[in-house]
Write a protein that binds this DNA or RNA. Structure first.
Lengths: 148, 148
DNA sequence: CCTAACAGTTAGGTTACCTAAATATCAAGG
DNA sequence: CCTTGATATTTAGGTAACCTAACTGTTAGG
């Protein structure tokens, strides 16, 4: 009995959680549609900031397959925001590194997006902001458990 | 000074929040890719459960334009999960109603998805689950503030 | 009635994914 | 060395979900 109650509570939480997830996806889509750089491209660019990242690593971090990452990288390259160069240690690999323009674009996009989100968070009460803050590391943990 | 500190804290929270949003989008994508019914289609189906929903309302609720909603509705109709019928009050409008098969599909998909999410939430501590639960209504509020 | 506004569908295009196949390089064993 | 299997990326081709613009039919106000 007790165990079933726990299960029921968990399933109820799961249901609410799923609704929140769905809404968040829409929020994200909205946010993305108002910017030049998609959030996936911004993610690539950030990985390319320090020293350069490999295509496989970028794909893994983005949660997509390698060809999809390549596609975004090529777009960023055409936009002059990253450059692709041979990996000195492994000639099979490609290192993707941000250009100066790329670096500037990250700062710009980050600032704009943070201000947009901060504008929304600013309408919340302190308690609500605290609730969000407390939940964020849990979302991180959830994400990691889905990865595997 | 004080105001700027508040701004900085808000921007920092916004930054962490954005990272969580991005991760959640990936969790959602993963979840969707393992199911027959996309979460958008499941959303349509749920709106079609009680009495029937209009295409425009479905689109609004889904956060997409009307033609995109029509497209999903047609797919569901071809799969035998909804039927489209004239609105008795307004012949311009179409009412989308779930069939018996559609009703069953909702129950099935909901159960599967809830169990998947519950499986993840079950690995969390009680405190972590509480943190998630406390944050969910805030996400709801955020979503509403983005809608306008 | 006529006309503007509205509800949906159709047509055509874009973007972000995916899988499978091709290319190039690496590393380990014989 | 040289082959062979694994690894890193790109290319080719396809799908699904979205969009805007244009079209059809219906309603409702002047």
């Amino acid at each position: 009995m007790n165990i079933n109650q726990a299960d029921d509570a968990l399933l109820a939480l799961a249901q609410s959680f799923r609704e929140a997830l769905r809404q968040i996806v829409y929020v994200m889509r909205r946010l993305d549609s108002e910017e030049q750089l998609s959030s996936a491209q911004l993610g690539v660019l950030k990985m390319a900031l320090d020293g350069g990242a490999r295509v496989g690593g970028i794909a893994r971090n983005l949660g997509v397959k390698v060809p999809s990452a390549t596609e975004q990288i090529i777009k960023l390259e055409r936009a002059g925001l990253v450059k692709r160069e041979a990996d000195p240690d492994d000639s099979r690999a490609v290192r993707v590194a941000a250009t100066a323009a790329g670096r500037a674009a990250v700062e710009n996009a980050d600032r704009r997006r943070n201000q947009y989100i901060a504008g929304i968070l600013g309408t919340l009460s302190q308690e609500e902001r605290d609730a969000v803050e407390a939940a964020l590391p849990v979302f991180d943990k959830i994400n990691n458990s889905v990865q595997n």
